[in-house]
Simulated assay, not measured.
Amino acid sequence: MSSHRTSTVDRDAVARALFVSMGLLRRRLRASGSPGELTFPEVAAVARLQRNGPATSAELARLEQISPQSMGATLAGLEERQLVRRSADPHDGRRVVMSVTERGARVMERRRDVRVEQIAAALDGFTDAELHCLLAATPLIQRLADGL
């Protein structure tokens, strides 16, 4: 038995609208960054280590879909700033794993707090109904992200 759904909503139009609006949001947040802030690859590496725990440079490169050389350079810069540290893999002493330092965790927390404050300030002009609508959409946006 086939599970075709009929819909009055144009899925491609929704995808296009989300792509445009989320891209604009991402660009505006990036544009408001401060000098010396982490680059996108640095944020991605630290966030991945925070979520998944210690990993090798090669594992991180594969997960982030970048070259091992690029990940190595990214991690070297993060290590130099003491945001990540290298240590022997507890399961295989021949391997080196990277993990987030306390300083790295604090930098990421401050970064998130600043971004949340920026978004909260932009929400000041929204009605309660609009805020409820945005809040209701967040699990759907998360589900969409998980599906990519």
Rank of each mutant, 00 (worst) to 15 (best):
R48D: 07
G33E: 08
S3N: 03
G33H: 11
E59P: 13
N52L: 13
T127C: 03
V96M: 08
D89Y: 02
R106T: 08
H91S: 04
V84T: 15
V9S: 04
A73L: 09
A76S: 15
S21A: 00
A137M: 12
M22C: 02
A15W: 05
R111K: 12
E79L: 14
S99V: 02
T74E: 12
A47T: 10
R28M: 07
A120H: 10
L148N: 13
R11L: 11
L83I: 02
R51T: 10
A17P: 01
R85W: 06
G23E: 05
L144C: 14
R143N: 10
V97Y: 06
M71E: 10
G33I: 00
M98I: 02
T39R: 13
A61F: 07
T39G: 11
S7G: 03
D10Q: 09
A105P: 11
R5K: 06
G53V: 00
A121G: 05
V100Y: 11
L60V: 01
T6H: 08
Q65W: 02
R5N: 02
E102N: 14
G125C: 04
G104D: 12
V43Y: 12
A55H: 08
R115A: 12
E59Y: 10
G53Y: 03
E59R: 15
R112P: 05
S7V: 02
F126M: 09
G125K: 07
L140N: 15
A121V: 03
E59Q: 14
R27Y: 00
A17C: 04
V114P: 02
G147M: 11
V114R: 11
D89P: 05
Q82K: 14
V84E: 14
L78K: 11
D113G: 15
M98V: 01
P90E: 01
T101E: 08
D92Q: 05
V9C: 08
R16Y: 02
R85I: 04
L148M: 15
A44N: 11
D92P: 04
D146R: 14
T56F: 02
D113R: 15
Q118G: 00
P68C: 03
F19T: 02
S99R: 06
V20A: 01
L25H: 06
A137D: 11
G72Q: 07
L63V: 07
H132G: 13
A47L: 10
M1V: 00
L24T: 12
A121Y: 04
R5Y: 04
A17N: 09
R106Y: 06
V100L: 10
G104H: 14
E117L: 14
T39P: 10
G23M: 01
E102F: 10
D12V: 01
G125P: 05
Q50W: 04
R81N: 14
A15E: 00
L63K: 06
R103A: 12
A88L: 01
S7N: 00
R27V: 00
S70W: 03
R81C: 13
L144I: 14
V43A: 12
A88C: 03
L75A: 08
R48L: 03
M22N: 09
A122E: 08
A17Q: 01
E102S: 10
L131M: 09
Q142E: 15
L29T: 03
T39F: 12
G53A: 08
D92K: 06
G125N: 05
L144S: 13
F40H: 10
M71C: 14
Q65V: 02
